[in-house]
């Protein structure tokens, strides 16, 4: 085949232009705007703005609400990650042991991933609804008074379950693929070497699964921190008493409800830094694969 060489700079730039335009307009520009705005103080109508340096950031660190939000986010992200990965791993190991009905079972387990986060939130909202929900009704029978509108931990449990539920499908798929990549002969060798099923799992399967586990760990933390907005918004709206006000929800709430653009932008910048560091970790370690 003949290789065509284009001289000049015009054509390559023209071919790149659409992608560059999209990136610039929808990613770089808003990010830049957020950074710019985080150094400004703006009045509620957006008429006057004034450069205030790092004042917005300093105010954040002094704000008990923001520090609370950091803590809530950490608890939330860790809980969602542990719950969704734990359940997914158990399901994946169960599927890996099945011979016949593996396919339909896998397909069914992936369905929740197709449900939009807001819909998932509503679904759980009704299931857990203190007035009409089925779960509070059942909990009432065993003597537990469920009310996520007033009880902080009830609210946290609700958003954790609602957020983790959706992510289980995704994790499950990766775990199944990871498990199937482990040669059966390794587990057979371990069986002959006198390791029982539990021991085999912890000595052989789980260590060999570590690249998958690490990848999912990062993905899940990112998910819990940034993509659970819809779940929070459709269930607790950050409440009660800030108990489920995770950082990404607080950005929205302070900015669009509270109209405090400077603080909201500063919070976005903090989130941006977190995303960047998670991405660095992801690339540095996942690209290299976890060593074994």
């Amino acid at each position: 085949m003949k290789r065509t060489i284009f001289n000049g700079q015009l054509l390559p730039w023209l071919l790149l232009a659409p992608q560059l335009a999209v990136t610039l307009v929808f990613f770089i520009w808003p990010a830049f705007q957020a950074i710019r705005q985080s150094f400004l103080r703006e009045d509620a109508f957006g008429i006057n703005s004034q450069f205030v340096g790092l004042a917005n950031f300093r105010a954040l660190l002094d704000s008990a609400q923001y520090l609370n939000s950091l803590k809530v986010t950490a608890v939330f992200a860790v809980s969602v990650t542990v719950l969704s990965m734990g359940v997914a791993l158990i399901l994946a190991v169960a599927v890996d042991r099945m011979l016949k009905s593996q396919r339909p079972y896998t397909t069914l387990l992936v369905w929740p991933y197709a449900v939009a986060p807001a819909v998932a939130g509503i679904l759980w909202y009704f299931i857990f609804n203190p007035t009409v929900g089925i779960l509070p009704y059942m909990l009432d029978i065993i003597g537990y008074d469920w009310n996520h509108n007033t009880d902080k931990s009830d609210a946290m449990i609700l958003v954790v379950i609602a957020s983790a539920w959706k992510q289980i499908s995704y994790n499950f798929l990766f775990f199944v693929a990871g498990l199937q990549a482990i040669p059966a002969s390794l587990r057979e060798a371990a069986a002959i070497d006198g390791a029982g099923p539990v021991r085999r799992f912890f000595d052989i399967t789980f260590p060999l699964l570590s690249p998958t586990t690490f990848f999912l760990l990062v993905v899940n933390i990112v998910y819990a921190m940034f993509e659970t907005f819809a779940v929070i918004d459709s269930t607790t709206e950050g409440g009660p008493a800030q108990a489920t006000n995770i950082m990404v929800y607080k950005v929205y709430f302070d900015g669009f409800i509270g109209q405090n653009m400077g603080s909201s932008a500063a919070q976005s910048v903090v989130l941006m830094l977190i995303v960047i560091s998670l991405t660095v970790i992801q690339f540095r370690y996942v690209e290299k694969r976890v060593e074994y």
Binding site: P183, S185, P207, L208
Partner: peptide, 12 residues
Amino acid sequence: AMVFQNYALYPH
């Protein structure tokens, strides 16, 4: 004791 075709050594 069994010796497997792909050796089945524990890679980690």
